[in-house]
Write a protein that binds this DNA or RNA. Structure first.
Lengths: 230, 230
DNA sequence: AGGCGCTTGTGAAGACGTGCACAAATCGCG
DNA sequence: CGCGATTTGTGCACGTCTTCACAAGCGCCT
């Protein structure tokens, strides 16, 4: 499940604040989900809760980390050291949560040789050598959209089977390769949609009209995390 | 729907390459979704396709931009000008897709006054004034997790009703405020899970064992975008 | 003008995720 | 040792999303 990492983060918080055990209700609140959903998710991992008590925080952390494959520190190659790539290279959230940026790569010779956070940017042509040396299985694409597909092909060619794509485009990859996409502008556009919806609803509570002037209020909205209470 | 921005991006690509019309199949490929799903999504906006021909690219762009509320250029306040905030401030994908970063804010006096991409970083205490001047409805939080909730409260207090949160924590906001969360490390962890699953399956195609050593292959996996063909 | 091929729009069926509500199980205390 | 409070694990029902399949509609060509 895609919620496991969120649980893991909440569990680490709890562990740091000295909690030995946690109830499904407590963990669900910390992770921002329903308690029944959380219990159902955790039951998929096998039973690790004690009825009447709750879950052992440490044990649950180990278990989730095992399932997520975080027992080994995975090496990641980051391609594209532009604006966003720079930030990603310096983002300590990766290192603190089980990942090691093993290589920074870029196609621009201007950027090759630059040192970021203790790592030197190498040319993308070095990818085959680097991938072999570091046994890289995960690649991050932070290039412009025009270069993303080419980079993806190169990553796949050297054995990368998981790609995190920040470029605003759809990647074609062979079967067996996983792609996750993060598009920062899309996130904002989704918020903009909600803004527009809210504005329409308050301005014209009961509006009809032609299709062209129809308000978007009728669209189904699956909000991500609304009104978590206080 | 959350897929509309993706369609919009694909449509802009098509428009730039000179396409006047596009079939649902073509647009679905460009956006990486099923054609039936795309047609159903577009039918929610009202009928804008011509049977036997397809959709008018320009018309569809206008329609989607209207529904997403992109007819006005929305002002965004970015709080937290650290590593990630820096990159976001310089990310031109925002400007090119209907958003204007109207203010950069940070609580660190060291960073106040710094100029990024033509904008000067202001202190977070300036938020009420800035929000009033720029009529800001969307806030982006790129602070450490410890500061995120406090910033969210401040944003809500000045009338922000949509928040994009990059901090790895759950935010509590009043009803009516939308929060979207992007956690870069979580994306990697999800990929790691897939890596682990793939490794387990290839190494031990039919494994049993106790719960502790059980393989995660049994977990339901809803892949985001796997095997889009060539 | 008529037919043919192509594409949209949609009804229906199925898969999936979600949440409730309750039985089973465990601990602590008298 | 037994009882009650508490919490997990899960069967069931519901709503949503997805996909297939096909009728309806449109343009083009003859």
């Amino acid at each position: 499940m895609a919620r496991l990492p969120e649980y893991l983060r909440a569990l680490h918080n709890l562990a740091e604040t000295g909690h030995e055990t946690v109830s499904s209700e407590g963990l669900a609140n910390a992770a921002g989900v329903n308690s029944a959903k959380l219990r159902k998710d955790l039951s998929q991992l096998g039973s690790y809760g004690t009825r009447g008590v709750g879950y052992d925080v440490g044990l649950l952390i180990d278990q989730i980390e095992y399932v997520l494959g975080l027992t080994q520190r995975r090496a990641v190659a980051l391609v594209g050291v532009g604006n966003l790539g720079h930030a990603l290279a310096g983002y300590d959230g990766f290192a603190s949560r089980g990942f090691r940026i093993a290589a920074l790569l870029d196609a621009d010779q201007e950027r090759v040789g630059e040192e970021i956070n203790g790592l030197v940017v190498q040319h993308i042509d070095e990818l085959p050598r680097v991938a072999a040396e570091e046994s890289i299985a995960i690649g991050v694409i932070a290039t412009p959209a025009a270069a993303a597909q080419r980079v993806a092909d190169q990553l796949v060619a050297v054995g990368v089977t998981s790609i995190l794509n920040f470029a605003p485009c759809v990647l074609s990859v062979p079967e067996g390769v996983d792609v996750r996409k993060v598009d920062l502008a899309i996130e904002l556009q989704i918020l903009s949609f909600h803004e527009h919806r809210k504005a329409s609803l308050t301005a014209l509570p009961a509006a009809g009209g032609s299709a062209l002037t129809a308000l978007p209020g009728g669209l189904a909205v699956t909000e991500s995390q609304e009104a978590i209470g206080t």
